[in-house]
């Protein structure tokens, strides 16, 4: 417990450090590449991270709870496939969009049901539903793709607002960010989320309905994955079964990078926003440097390792210094 607490204080400073690190990356990147610090490039960064950001808002709650949902990218793909499939079958576009979001919500609900009502571990279960949801998308569309969508919506996906450099999706992301930020930091729901992650036992004694709470978080994670599915579909103007493969890992690494503890109980919204932008900025810099796109996968992996190892190493170093101080 006390080790957990110590790790906690490192974590708290970590999420402020990550904001500093983000600024540092921006300074470094703009010094090394002339076109990094341009509105256009930032527009790309925001646009490229939009699905990750949307899902991360919800996944933040999930990881704080001490649970995990690895199926989010598959939910995105299933939602997207359903969107394309139903639209191709002649459904009005708004119905297809609704289907995408509803399917996402239902998938999240199923995950929640398996974890809370049947008592299965979220890691194992969502590895299962990761395969299941993606598999259903596969079965539904096979190798087909749907890429004819109304222009209004595809322009929502990749155009900017008027002559500005703000992607049209940005206001939506900001609204969600504010809503989820308030939910985590300003409401009893958020407090209870943190409480469950810190000590499920104490949460029970504090009168928190842990099962219902987890159910809600799983369900809205599905919902947000569905929303991300809509954005992804229109941004690439493509509905296909392998949309967003591996995106779950990008989401999780961005969250951990943002100072959220993989053991639960600790995390902030600003940390996560910084974490997602940091990952996005590094990738953007690599692109501008014309570094082989393949390197990005490696960089993502290394960022993930750093985000999980750094707090532990910092803690170890601290303990060693304290021990030294004690001995002398």
């Amino acid at each position: 417990m006390s080790k957990f607490a110590k790790l906690g204080s490192v974590r708290r400073s970590w999420d402020t450090a990550i904001i500093g690190l983000l600024l540092l990356v921006w300074v470094f990147a703009s010094l090394t590449t002339s076109n990094f610090l341009t509105p256009l490039n930032f527009s790309y960064i925001f646009s490229n991270t939009s699905e990750i950001m949307i899902i991360a808002f919800a996944m933040l709650f999930m990881i704080i709870l001490g649970e995990i949902d690895l199926s989010v990218a598959s939910i995105l793909a299933l939602g997207s496939s359903m969107l394309g499939w139903s639209y191709a079958k002649g459904a009005p576009i708004w119905v297809s969009i609704l289907i995408c979001i509803l399917v996402g919500t239902a998938c999240g609900f199923i995950n929640g049901f398996l974890v809370t009502k049947l008592g299965l571990g979220s890691l194992a279960v969502t590895i299962g539903t990761l395969a299941l949801y993606r598999g259903i998308a596969n079965g539904l569309l096979g190798e087909n793709t749907v890429n004819e969508f109304p222009e209004f919506w595809t322009s929502f996906g990749f155009d900017t607002i008027g002559k500005s450099f703000m992607p049209k999706t940005l206001p939506l992301i900001i609204i969600f960010g504010i809503l989820f930020g308030l939910l985590l930091h300003k409401t009893p729901f958020g407090r209870r989320t943190l409480a469950i992650g810190q000590s499920p036992e104490a949460a029970k004694f504090a009168g928190v309905n842990v099962i219902r709470h987890k159910m809600i978080v799983f369900t809205f994670t599905g919902f947000m994955s569905g929303v991300a599915g809509v954005i992804y579909t229109f941004r690439f103007s493509t509905a296909q079964a392998d949309n967003g493969v591996g995106l779950e890992l990008l989401v999780i690494s961005a969250i951990l990078l943002g100072g959220v503890s993989i053991f639960g109980g600790i995390g902030t919204m600003w940390g996560v926003v910084a974490g997602v932008l940091l990952a996005g900025s590094v990738e953007s810099w690599l692109t501008l440097q014309e570094i082989n796109a393949q390197w990005r996968t490696i960089v993502t992996g290394i960022l993930l390792l750093i985000s999980v190892a750094a707090p532990v190493l910092v803690q170890k170093g601290k303990a060693r210094r304290e021990l030294k101080a004690l001995k002398s």
């Binding site: 398996l114 049947l118 299965l120 571990g121 194992a124 279960v125 590895i127 299962g128 539903t129 990761l130 395969a131 299941l132 949801y133 993606r134 598999g135 259903i136 596969n138 079965g139 096979g142 190798e143 079964a241």
Partner: peptide
């Protein structure tokens, strides 16, 4: 194309 879905379902059944 249903292969992955079946894998997932089998896994969930096994855990259950």
């Amino acid at each position: 194309f249903w292969k992955a879905a079946i894998n997932g379902l089998l896994l969930i059944i096994a855990i259950y």
